[in-house]
Simulated assay, not measured.
Amino acid sequence: MMWEAAKRVIEKIEQAGFEAVFVGGAVRDFIIGQPNHDVDIATSALPSEIKAIFSETIDVGIEHGTVLVLDEGEPIEVTTYRTDGLYTDHRRPDAVTFVRSLDEDLARRDFTMNAMAMTRSGAIIDLYNGQEDINKKVIRAVGHAEKRFQEDALRMIRAIRFSAQLGFTIEATTLSAIKSLAEQIQYVAKERIHAEFNKVWISRFPAQGIAMLEQTTLSHFLQGSFTAADWEKFQTTNPLVGWAYFYVLNEQESFFSNYKCSNKEKIFAKQVAEAHGKLQEGWQVLDYFHYDIDVLYTAYDIARWREQAIAFSRDEIETRKAELPIATTQQLAISGSDVIEWAQKKGGPWLKEALAAALLAVLTKQVENDKEQLKEWFHDIYKG
């Protein structure tokens, strides 16, 4: 659907007398034969000309030539051909110059496999032998490799991320350039590194990505331990799991702020680390109760990836959690006010202890989760 909408956008641009083509990852993935729903268009038309052609547009990056076109039912990014100025911040060009030539636009792109274009009819425009490199499963910088990485140092990690995703090798000159410029990764915003790592974690070959971080010495300038052997068995489709595993391998509190992790990522990783630590002694009923099943699964998987002995199967986790009499503390049949009334004394630290004991008694099936039975248990057993 996205492709069809994009084709209609290109057709309207052509009807207005301009050139427009598919570019970037969409073309690469089309040639590789894998799905891609992020379809981008490059054009000889200026942003103002695109806005004149279409009735519904949003300026999402107009200073760099990008306009979001909404006319065809799907949001389609359309970017004017451009050349880039100096990259003094190692991230973005200080200025861009809009041009009418596709050749000039393709020359500024990072890797040959990303520097191809495709017409609406499906003809491939390949000025840098990107198709040949794809066939050879090679990642090669466009033009002078060191210049590409000096422009945007994140491209070094992007090369490694593509290697992990596709199983491609990095061409020798490109690899050498990464090694010589590795320290420049320190100039890159941590949020951008975080986004690339998200893709490494869920890639087909994450251990290959970690190995390349070591081989290129990029790992020397990034926080954490990057040992490929630790990642040989790792595989996930959830980036949260990747951050949790990375944290378990490192367990440094500064790790979260350094990589600009979200609160969700931080909480999940710390819970997984706790559950993983407790797994070595064997999980108790309170562990099955307190930890979400995704946390338990991840902690279990980490133990397997690290070849640690586990006395039960992964399938038993769901079974044991499902067998709990209650799933949340809110389901406990009594409240603090009940216990205060039964004890006939003011609340205090003892109250929290009493409720915790009642919860454990219910979870271990010493008593039914019933208010009257819990009252009897409190008087006869807990209160003594």
Results as ranks from 00 to 15, higher is better:
Leu127Val: 08
Glu72Cys: 08
Asp94Cys: 10
Lys278Ile: 08
Val27Lys: 00
Gln330Asn: 12
Ile58Met: 06
Leu166Ser: 12
Val60Cys: 15
Arg92Gly: 03
Glu14Ala: 03
Thr97Lys: 09
Pro325Leu: 03
Pro349Phe: 04
Ala6Trp: 01
Ala189Gln: 14
Glu368Tyr: 04
Val241Gln: 14
Ala123Ile: 15
His90Glu: 07
Ala333Tyr: 01
Asp29Met: 05
Ile310Met: 09
Glu49Lys: 00
Thr216Asp: 09
Glu183Leu: 15
Thr236Lys: 09
Glu63His: 11
Gln165Arg: 05
Ser313Leu: 13
Ser48Ala: 10
Met156His: 10
Lys345Leu: 04
Ala211Gly: 05
Ile157Glu: 08
Val367Asp: 02
Val78Asp: 10
His90Trp: 11
Phe205Lys: 03
Leu46Val: 03
Ser262Cys: 00
Val295Met: 11
Gln252Phe: 12
Glu281Ser: 14
Ile139Val: 07
Ile134Thr: 01
Phe98His: 06
Asn36Lys: 05
Lys352Gln: 05
Ile10Ala: 01
Glu214Ala: 09
Asp110Tyr: 04
Gln215Cys: 09
Ile124Phe: 04
Arg100Ser: 08
Ala189Pro: 12
Asn114Tyr: 00
Gln184Leu: 06
Ala357Asp: 15
Val362Pro: 06
Glu376Gly: 08
Thr88Ser: 09
Phe205Glu: 04
Ile58His: 12
Lys190Gly: 12
Gly277Met: 03
Phe255Asp: 01
Ala357Tyr: 05
Ser55Tyr: 15
Leu355Gln: 13
Ser262Tyr: 00
Gly65Met: 06
Asp59Pro: 03
Gln373Leu: 07
Ala153Cys: 13
Gly209Leu: 00
Arg158Ser: 03
Val23Phe: 01
Glu151Trp: 14
Leu374Lys: 01
Asn198Gly: 03
His276Pro: 12
Asp152Pro: 08
Gln280Asp: 06
Glu251Asn: 15
Ile50Asp: 00
Val23Trp: 00
Trp350Tyr: 05
Met1Thr: 14
Thr237Ser: 10
